[in-house]
Write a protein that binds this DNA or RNA. Structure first.
Lengths: 202, 202
DNA sequence: TTTAAAAGTTGAGTCGTTGCACTTTTTTAG
DNA sequence: CTAAAAAAGTGCAACGACTCAACTTTTAAA
């Protein structure tokens, strides 16, 4: 368990991982210190003692340096839908999951600064949002399956899209929890139609 | 020199507008002909017989060359909310407006190609979406005012955000109308809670 | 007319990103 | 066990988008 490597973890791959980690660490340090736009990729590469080309062999873009920890959120998202408690609606289950995973993350002391770096840098906020929205198709599929609807049902696509977009709504708000709950109240019960006196159809 | 008093619109501004139009026209022609990524800003500037620096004095970015016609959608959006027919709910009024303005691909014969250029070029799709979402705050304000709620009410912000995002849902779908209607049905009536004892199996 | 401020234009440079060439490691053939 | 190809890492130089400091032209003021 100590010296044996059950899976062929090559010496080369270990050095590769070390270089990658050095790049990510150097990048985060420099970005937090001087600001994302004030640091060039050449600076990051130099701090990690590699060339810019090597940097781009490890990370597809400058923004990707910040989003190194790519935990599998998609599986958790789908699981929140599929393994929701009995009697819990789909929007409610999604709200529970998002409140659990996107609000209290502040166990790490350095996390607020990391979060502020992303939210305060437009290009990083965009990049993170785009990555987050990549789960839309998988989520829509799970929703459709759970609801017993067709794979490309527009309502399922809409719920998946809106549920993921809801977290973007909380950015820059003083009370993310209330915002998230209000958004999901809308998805769950609809807009309180105080103006219409007669409902149509169905 | 001469005694002719310059009209309110200087001849300088006219030439400036002409240069700007020449740039936008050349850009659209070249982009439609060879594809956005295959045409450099230098090519566009050369086609309009100016330097690249001059191009960037007229347009803030390469993408902005395509979105020259910045019609005032925001006013129309707010008007759709404020001047909606009596008894019409806010989501319904927004749906009507979007169906009217975003579906009937205008009478312009060249418009489909223009639309395809944008939707088929990721960076342009992103840029257009970002511009579209800039109306979110104004729309949320109008919604809050019409609903008699506070300016920063989370539900109003959510409705504004989701209503604007709904058009992004239609991109790449074969039936945009149905998709839009399904999305607004969700916003109007909420997610049908079929999990409460109504589901069959699973 | 003189002159100064404003706007237009430009070539040279920066930054993110990539293609081509070179070195090093791993795999395969003898 | 050696040799050499195949694969992967690395770097220099270049490309495209975009900016900066200086020069020229236009407009307005004295």
């Amino acid at each position: 368990m100590v010296s044996d490597t059950p899976k062929p973890v090559g010496r080369r791959e270990r050095k590769k991982a070390a270089t990658r980690q050095a790049l990510a660490d150097a990048a985060l340090d420099l970005f937090l210190e001087h600001g994302y736009d004030q640091v060039s990729v050449r600076d990051v590469a130099e701090a990690a003692d590699v060339s810019t080309t090597t940097l781009f062999k490890h990370f597809p873009s400058k923004e990707a340096l910040v989003f190194d920890e790519d935990t599998d959120q998609q599986a958790a998202l789908v699981a929140a839908v599929r393994e929701r408690p009995a009697g819990r609606s789909l929007p409610a289950a999604l709200l529970d999951h998002l409140l659990r995973t996107h609000l209290p993350t502040t166990a790490d002391p350095g996390f607020p600064r990391y979060r502020q770096l992303i939210l305060g840098t437009p290009v990083l906020r965009e990049y993170g949002h785009r990555m987050w929205m990549r789960h839309e198709a998988a989520l829509a599929e799970a929703i459709a399956d759970e609801a017993g609807l067709l794979q490309d049902d527009p309502a399922c696509a809409a719920l998946a899209h809106f549920a993921l977009e809801a977290v973007a709504l909380t950015h820059g708000r003083d009370d993310p929890r209330t915002t998230l709950e209000a958004a999901f109240a809308l998805l769950e019960h609809g807009w309180p139609g105080r103006t219409e006196g007669a409902g149509q159809g169905a």
